[in-house]
Every structure is written in structure tokens, then in C-alpha cells.
Design a protein around this nucleic acid. Structure first.
Lengths: 186, 186
DNA sequence: GCCCCTCAGTACGGCAGCGTATGGATACGG
DNA sequence: CCGTATCCATACGCTGCCGTACTGAGGGGC
């Protein structure tokens, strides 16, 4: 997967752009800065993209493609909805600890950009739909399922917020238990 | 409260800076752009601040001062913890609808800046403490109260997140009911 | 082996924003 | 009415970044 040849592809640029977004937002996506980190000059960039805007659009498209339904496939394979939900929660709570820079959170600062809005909206929608149908499988009526999914997903997002802005991380097991107790229907 | 005199104060600049942060992040805080929106030139700015950094620091300090414990005073006055929690939830769910730009969310995009980290951390800590003690008053043991407060606050943050990136707003009453059912201890 | 296409280097123009210098205007206390 | 401090305008240099033009080097199909 690693491109050891000195030649770069367009994907190398979109990947670098996403990394830049993850820890600096759209403002951190600059042609010349990226070229420096990639070890080339911007002459290379303009062989792959027409301008900076095109790179941003490509990077965002890449992102929501991998974080929409694609990223949910693993869990969609779990037949039992209760277990599916439990594994989702624990996975989220566990993955939340490290200060792994998150594209999703960084994009909040640029949520006025229509392309960003579109991308974030797609990802959120896919996840909300997934959670909603899971709750429906658990027997909740449609509207209740939708609301519960919404609050549950909101909690997931919020936990990531908190994890990114705090140094002390509370015990993950206890938190997972608390989350499970709250979001698994009685 | 409105300063109709043509002369500006330092507070006018910090307020403008916060507004800029709310819908563009730190990157949107520029001396010359702000001067344009305020109808003056940057000559005015450098009469109040030594540089752009000082403005940002002042604006952030202003923000967490008003959104930390100060903003919670209104609810701290409610004696009954159950009612306090309910009013908090409904107020949050209600205030979430409009696309009122949120400083808090925008700051997440710049969470790598140490000053931003500090400010956001202070506000979150104050709110978490408040929620935790409320849950304790409701009879939960300390560790459970802390975890429950954490998840509840996370849900609040996440709901704001969702409200900002979606066009369709689900019925606020239903959502408030769902949230209350979830976060008010049985 | 030759050509062509892709990737990369160099150089230039342009623009926006930061910071400084300086002087003018306005308010206010004495 | 005068002096001083505060607020504001103008002009300038500087830096970082975008975008374009042109050139060069290397590899694969024929």
C-alpha cells in the first residue's frame, strides 16, 4: 500500500490533504505546505489537480465514501441487533481515547463551506439510518427509534468531542457500561 | 448596550472576533477583515491590541468566562435536581434548532491550538461538574453520576453538532421527550 | 530505439493579510 | 482654553500562498 517510488499519484495528495484537514481544518490544506511535507514542489500538484479547490473536493469525497455506509459494513454483518448495538458502543468508546486527529471534528470549524456541509451530512445520515433501523429491529416504533438513534449518535459524537479536548480519560469500561445501560433499551 | 458612537472599544473588537470565530473558526479572525466589518481601518485595532494573537487570547478568555460557571447560574438556582435537569434538557433541545453559529463547535476545528484547548476544557469541565453534582443529588453513587453526566453532556454537544449540519429539524418536543426519557434516572 | 505522456522543478506575477510608522482628529480633565 | 490620552486613517514593507508558464527528466507502448 505504501508508495515507495518517488513518483506521486493523485491519491497521495488527497490522503495528505485529509491528514492536514484532520489537524488543522480546511485552512491547513495548502498546495505549497502539502508539497513540502510530501517532499516535492507544487509543480507536481498542478499535474494532478487543476487547483486547490479540486483537491479539497476530491479529499472530501474520498472521506465520506469511506466513512458513510462503507465504514458500517462490518457491523451491518452482525445479525442480532442487540449485540450489534453493544459492539458499536464499545467500539466507539474504546476508539475514542487516543488523540487521533479526527477529520469529522475538524470539519466542524468549516461547516459553512457547502462542500463540507454536504460531506458531513452524508456521513451523519448514513450512520443515523443505520442506528435507526437497528432500534427498529429491537422493536421500537419508527418515530421513537429515530429519536433514540439521534440521541445515541449525538452522544457518540459528543464523547469524541470530549476525548479530544481533555487530557484525563475516564475508565473506558465504566463508560462503556454506562453508555450501554443508557442506550440499550430496557 | 449598543455603542452608537463612532469610536470603538476593545470589547467591540473581542465581540466581533467571537462572532467571526462562531462562523469561521480562528482562521476567520483577521485584523483587516474585522476592521472592514466594523467600518474602520486596522489603525484602530492596533490602538487596542498589540497584535492578532492578543485579540484571540482576549476573545477566548471572554468566552469561557461567560460560558463556564457564569452561564450555569440560572439553573443552579433551581432547587429540585430533577426539575433542574429537565429544564436544562428542554432548554438545550429548544436552543439547538436555529442555525445560530456556535463558538463552541467552531473551536473544535481549532482544537490543536493550546489556547483553544484550554478554553474549551474549562467550559466543559464546569458543565460536567454541574451535571455530575446534579446526578449525585438525585441519588446516584459518585462514579455512576460522573459517567452518566458525561454521556448526557456528550449527547447535548452531539445534538448541537447534528443541528448545525442538517437542514431538516426533527420535532423538538419529541426529541426533548426522548432525551428526558433517556437521561432522567428511572 | 523513438516518441509521448506523466510527474516534477523553477520562475514569475499577483493578492491578501500582518505589523509599523506617522500624523490627524476627538474627547476630557484641569 | 490647553494639553494629553485615546481612537482612527493612510501609507509602506514584508511574508506566505495561489496560479501560470515553461522546461526537464523518466518510463512504457509501438
Amino acid at each position: 500500500m505504501v508508495n515507495d517510488s518517488p513518483r506521486l499519484s493523485a491519491q497521495d495528495w488527497t490522503r495528505a490533504a485529509l491528514k492536514a484537514i484532520a489537524d488543522g481544518g480546511l485552512a491547513a490544506v495548502g498546495v505549497e505546505p502539502l508539497a513540502r511535507t510530501l517532499g516535492v514542489t507544487k509543480g507536481s500538484f498542478y499535474a494532478h489537480f487543476r487547483n486547490r479547490d479540486e483537491l479539497i473536493t476530491a479529499a472530501l469525497a474520498d472521506w465520506w465514501r469511506n466513512h458513510g455506509e462503507a465504514g458500517l459494513a462490518e457491523y451491518a454483518a452482525i445479525a442480532d441487533p442487540g449485540q450489534r448495538l453493544r459492539e458499536l458502543l464499545t467500539a466507539v468508546v474504546r476508539s475514542v481515547q487516543p488523540l487521533a486527529p479526527s477529520v469529522h471534528l475538524s470539519l466542524l470549524g468549516d461547516r459553512n463551506d457547502p462542500r463540507v456541509k454536504e460531506a458531513v451530512s452524508r456521513v451523519n445520515q448514513a450512520r443515523l439510518n443505520f442506528l435507526t433501523s437497528t432500534y427498529r429491529e429491537l422493536g421500537l416504533p419508527p418515530d421513537q427509534a429515530a429519536n433514540r438513534a439521534r440521541v445515541a449518535y449525538a452522544a457518540i459524537l459528543g464523547l469524541q468531542h470530549l476525548a479530544q479536548t481533555e487530557s484525563d480519560s475516564p475508565s473506558p469500561e465504566a463508560l462503556a457500561d454506562a453508555a450501554a445501560a443508557i442506550f440499550l433499551p430496557s
